[in-house]
């Protein structure tokens, strides 16, 4: 289908969805922890905006509620919490080394193409205005995993984890009209509890290895030495 055939709102959805992937790329390149959290908050905001826009286009009003949940949870509450934790842990000056940035970026681009390939059969089936963004959601999930693999900082891992959740939530909005409300609330509850637990863990890890570098968590191994 030609892009000019889309209505204004559909084009806007596509545009913001593209920005969501862009934020994922930014996270991969971001070295300071604060920067990472700001980018994560932006991602949350944009996912929420896309949701609100699709609610407007498709006239599924309960999507407004989903958009609100995302906005509060992913764009405000969790970034704020992480921000405060970083200050309390006194690690805001830490700059993480990004190993092999060029390779990471190439891998990320390949992952985006891979997700377009994987979801092709789904896109062809769907009749929703948002169908072009399904690949975006899978890409955000995969890029979140890549972020977790390529970094060593516990806080970065949590941001990667939450970004994966963003991608999943986006998938639910893009491919269907959002999950049933009770499921969505359940997921939001789980994410919130997980965020609080992660905060608790930062302090535990710090008190046990005196750093938040998860590479130093290496006491247990598959075969004991």
């Amino acid at each position: 289908m030609d892009i000019t055939q889309y209505t204004f709102y559909e084009q806007a959805i596509l545009f913001i969805a593209a920005l969501v992937v862009f934020t994922s790329f930014l996270m991969l390149a971001q070295r300071s922890l604060f920067g990472l959290i700001y980018v994560f908050a932006w991602q949350g905001l944009m996912v929420s905006m896309t949701t609100a826009l699709s609610a407007y286009v498709t006239q599924f009003h309960h999507l407004y509620v989903s958009a609100l949940i995302t906005l509060v949870l992913k764009a405000i509450l969790i970034p704020l919490m992480l921000h405060r934790l970083i200050i309390r842990l006194d690690i805001h000056r830490e700059v993480e080394t990004v190993l092999y940035p060029a390779y990471t970026m190439t891998a990320a681009a390949a992952l985006v193409m891979f997700s377009y390939y994987v979801v092709l059969p789904i896109e062809q089936l769907s009749s929703l205005a948002t169908r072009n963004t399904i690949a975006v959601s899978l890409a955000v999930v995969l890029l979140g995993m890549l972020l977790m693999i390529s970094r060593r900082q516990a806080v970065t891992h949590v941001v990667g984890f939450m970004s994966i959740e963003n991608g999943l939530f986006f998938a639910a909005v893009a491919s269907t009209q959002g999950m049933p409300m009770v499921v969505e609330l359940g997921i939001a509850f789980d994410v919130l509890v997980a965020a609080v637990l992660f905060g608790v863990f930062f302090f535990h890890i710090r008190s046990s290895i005196d750093s938040l570098d998860v590479d130093q968590l290496n006491r247990l191994s598959e075969v004991e030495r």
Partner: peptide, 23 residues
């Protein structure tokens, strides 16, 4: 603590895949 962190991250990311499947 290391075991719990591993459990949390691995199961969290793992089970996220199941959510995609559910979607």
């Amino acid at each position: 603590i290391e075991a719990a962190w591993k459990y949390f991250i691995l199961c969290g990311v793992g089970i996220a895949q199941a959510l995609f499947g559910t979607v």
